[in-house]
Design a protein around this nucleic acid. Structure first.
Length: 546
DNA sequence: CTGGGGATGGGGCCC
DNA sequence: CGGGCCCCATCCCCA
């Protein structure tokens, strides 16, 4: 376990539906996690350990809701036309941009003004009581439960309070574009950056016609009792709503603009500051750009997490690709293949439903558990035909076979060191070793122009060097060497040291299997080769792409 | 720094 | 359409 899992859990904790019986499930998961940590930890290890608690945010929200219903710890009362709704200020600030600004909870704001300290009653007569109740339920349950007849009131309330995802969901249901009903014009800019994301939340694995949440919106069951689709995770405040949008859009609002009085927000004022987007589809230009940047062209009607694209592979096409791509509502990544989105979502939620019966280690995927079980059964289904080595994974065998063949098809374009594995080449290029090696080769000053000398210096460590090879010499060793002046001799020596290290490293190593590395790798030019052809390469031209 | 094993996540194919 | 199975790319860890 590493911090990646912790981060993923932190992102995704809010996505889980409220477990009806929190303790048992949670205890089970927790203990299993502890067990897996014990397995993963080596004795004496003092590293950071991340233990995911996928149910945590759901628990928190559930208990907050219980407190709200019991009137416990409520520090804010919302009123609408005589109806009173005790609630928690922090929750409302988390879910509503209006309250965030009202309480000065936006990032970068120095505390709240006025109401943040003393006001405990906020009169919202402009929001219908039923709508306000529904929005409160949403805030505490991440589920919006409303009647179709009340949809418009909820939409209005969501707009007024700056609960964007709810407003978008209502608009989708009503089949309206944002401009049609967004009379208040509140936070249009914010919506532009978030509409696509939030609407995708409410549409699970992809039905643009019938969003996942639609089944609940016509039922009158309490939100807490209505099952929420796992991936719809539409509006978990702790997940997408909580991060304030300050710093993105709407941050130009001054203190006086968010100094709402108890009589209700006057968002028309805000609308004047944030004129609605004029883009035809309701997406801001930035939004459109971002979509274009991701290569996803999603018209609004299909940008709901439903199928991305037509499913046809396009003209050049790979073969049949009927499995419609879907976009992850959390990371916006396009997931190809039917049924793959749930699998992907578990990377965010940290959910690992597949547990090893032998050691308790949990996995996000069944096929990974299956492979893991081979460790317990001793099964190594991928034997090397040339040696007794056997492997758990087919790709391990593939890597291993490259040892037998000596093939090193992955060559560094900078130093031309060849690797048997692509990831080793990548690692090599990411590190500094490549630059060092690159500077180790001496090069005559006569073969380089002034621009080459300057352009390929250490400052271009991450650059790519292109070389023109002699057509008669297909494997000319090519080095991109900056002019190093008096350091040439030093680096020349280093080169030979490196060559010796290359020729001696790895001998006698091996993980049980012989390591028949050839003295001269057939593909990658050995260092000796480079020395022999050193004169030839002086004729090469090189250019640095930076 | 490199080689190697293992883990993780995504995509393709198929049922 | 969901899921199983497999392959692949990439990353991490360790020697």
């Amino acid at each position: 376990m590493d911090w990646r899992s912790v981060t993923a859990c932190g992102v995704g904790c809010g996505s889980r539906a409220f477990p009806p019986s929190l303790p048992s499930r949670h205890l089970f998961d927790h203990q299993a996690t502890i067990a897996s940590v014990r397995v993963a930890m080596s004795p004496g290890e003092d590293g950071l350990i991340g233990i995911p608690f996928p149910e945590h945010s759901s628990e928190i929200l559930s208990r907050l809701n219980a407190q709200r219903r019991a009137g416990l710890l409520c520090d804010l009362t919302l009123t609408s036309r005589g109806a009173r709704y005790p609630t928690h200020r922090s929750v409302m600030a988390a879910v509503s941009l209006y309250f965030r600004r009202l309480f000065g909870a936006e990032e970068g704001e120095e505390g709240g003004e006025g109401v943040s300290s003393g006001c405990s009653v906020c009169q919202l007569d402009c929001v219908a009581p039923d709508a306000l109740d529904a929005l409160l339920e949403f805030a505490y349950t991440a589920t919006l439960t409303i009647r179709s007849s009340g949809m418009r009131e909820v939409l209005k309330g969501a707009q007024l309070l700056g609960i964007q995802c709810v407003a978008d969901a209502c608009r989708d249901i009503l089949g309206e574009s944002g401009e049609d009903v967004d009379q208040e014009g509140f936070e249009e800019a914010e919506r532009a950056s978030r509409r696509k994301r939030d609407r995708r939340h409410v549409n699970k694995a992809g039905s643009p016609v019938r969003p996942a949440w639609k089944s609940t919106q016509q039922e009158s069951t309490p939100p807490s009792a209505s099952p929420r689709p796992e991936y719809g995770l539409p509006h978990t405040p702790g997940r997408e709503e909580l991060p304030p949008v300050a710093g993105q859009n709407g941050e130009t609002l001054g203190a006086h603009q968010r100094a709402m009085v108890n009589g209700g927000p006057h968002w028309t004022q805000m609308g004047a500051l944030h004129p609605p987007s004029h883009t035809g589809d309701g997406l801001s230009e930035d939004d459109q750009k971002s979509e274009g940047a991701t290569g996803v062209s999603t018209p609004p009607s299909t940008a709901l997490g439903g199928p991305i694209g037509s499913g046809t592979a396009g003209p050049g096409g790979r073969k049949r690709k009927s499995q419609t791509p879907q976009q992850c509502p959390v990371c916006q990544k396009i997931i190809h293949g039917a049924g793959k989105l749930p699998r992907h979502m578990r990377t965010h939620t940290g959910e690992k439903p597949f547990q090893c019966s032998a050691c308790g280690v949990r996995f996000t995927r069944n096929d990974k558990l299956k492979i893991h079980m081979r460790k317990h059964t001793g099964e190594r289904p991928y034997p090397c035909p040339d040696c007794p080595a056997r492997f758990l994974h087919s790709y391990d065998l593939k890597n291993h076979l490259s040892l037998h063949s000596g093939a090193r098809p992955f060559e560094c374009p900078l130093c031309h060191k060849a690797f048997a594995r692509e990831d080793h080449l990548q690692r090599h290029r990411k590190g500094y070793s490549c630059l060092e090696l690159r500077t180790r080769r001496p090069r005559r000053a006569s073969g380089l122009g002034p621009g080459e000398a300057g352009g390929c210096g250490p400052s271009t460590a991450t650059g790519t060097l292109l070389y023109h090879q002699d057509p008669d010499s297909p494997r000319l060793p090519m080095q991109g060497l900056p002019l190093l002046g008096p350091r040439l001799h030093y680096h020349h020596s280093l080169l030979w040291m490196g060559a010796e290290a290359q020729s001696t490293r790895g001998r006698g190593e091996g993980e049980g299997a012989p390591s028949p590395r050839p003295a001269q790798p057939p593909l990658g030019p050995g260092w000796d080769d480079e020395e022999e052809e050193d004169d030839e390469e002086d004729e090469e031209e090189e250019e640095c792409l930076g």
